[in-house]
Design a protein around this nucleic acid. Sequence first.
DNA 1: TCTGGGGTCCTAGGACCC
DNA 2: TCTGGGGTCCTAGGACCC
Length: 414
Amino acid sequence: MSAVATKNKVILHIDGDAFFVGVECAKNPKLKGLPVVTGEERGIVSALSYEAKALGVVRGMPIFKIKKEFPNVVVLPGDYKSYVEYSSKMFEIVNRYAYGVEEYSIDECFADVTGLDRTLKKTYREIAEKIKKEIADELGLSVSIGLAPTKVLAKVASNWVKPNGLTIIDTSTAGDFLAKVPIGKVWGIGPRTADVLIRRGAKTALDFREKDLLWVKKCLSKPYEAIWLELNSVLVMGVNTEVKNAYSSIQKTRTFHPATNDKAFLWSQISKHIEDACRKARHYELTPKKISIFLKTNDFKIASASTTLPSPSNSPEISLSVARELFKKIHTKGILYRTAGVTLDALTADFAPQADLFGDTAKGDKFDLIHKQIDFLENKLGKRVVYLGSTKQALDHKELGTDADELDRDLLFL
DNA sequence: TCTGGGGTCCTAGGACCC
DNA sequence: TCTGGGGTCCTAGGACCC
């Protein structure tokens, strides 16, 4: 037995209430108390106020439907810049009370606040209340807070009362809470795994927690062991306070309707996604080593193919040349596809590439220079001043059949 | 929730090596 | 030619998150 008693950690989780709408109300307090949605520019609801929810509005609802059926709902375009600003200010406030914050998403963070009760001579509840008050006073935002010995339990806690909640779960009370949490509501357990667990008799988080580890290992894969341990108050998912400053993948996808099998159209979508993904990679000075593309059918089956690039490059011409083969592999005659997507993978910070035997790197260098010029132009004149010939159709919104090969010329259109 | 877009991590199976 | 076992890399697909 260890001489040092292993005392439970105290993990805090903060979740913004209807965050995007919350920010809009903070910017324009007249909106407070009104049914408000954001997402006008996307055509579907991204976020909605609790007042809008009460009327029957749901996430993903088409904006035209809102305007028609709920004329008194305020519809706003998303203002991502503000959301990011408010988000980082919110994290700064939390950071006053923690040695680092894990920025989990734009409206959520975790922090390890263990021991702060002694340092600040306050209870954990008082500390959480203070954080909540500062966020409300300084930013005009409402949040829900959970305090618990692990991240998974802290998520359960912050979700327990919403909006404007403050819930504390400790080892002794966890069972009472978990008995009321359907297994599918646990962070990390989605519909598939929930099905499996329910069939095996674990309907609630408590049922699952009471299974033994061997059972968990036998029925599920590795990540679920961590969830099981965390439900049992064993902290295994560390709070990662490192500021995440690089993507490890960049994805571009688009769903179109109606679904189609048109080869030329689908290929032009892929081409556009490759251009856009490469542009983003260049913007962040990242270079992918891998590319993968996928097509999704009407019944949500995904056919994907991926490969390692001949040499790392963020020029679309390189990706395009290998994607052509990948596309041939996954495109099946007669099947209708609803979504096409591209992922650039294994991104690393830009580096000076070594010349290789086959001259691919030399080719990449040439395109590199061209794209530097184009990026410069586009920064001044706007996006897509210049684009690949194979992308043209996607930009024209043409859906009629044209021979794919005819369009697949790596030409730049001005 | 008949289901948008952008991410992360894991796993099984095959290829190839010793 | 057949045989065994282990390691590692690659690819396709699955599951989950916000």
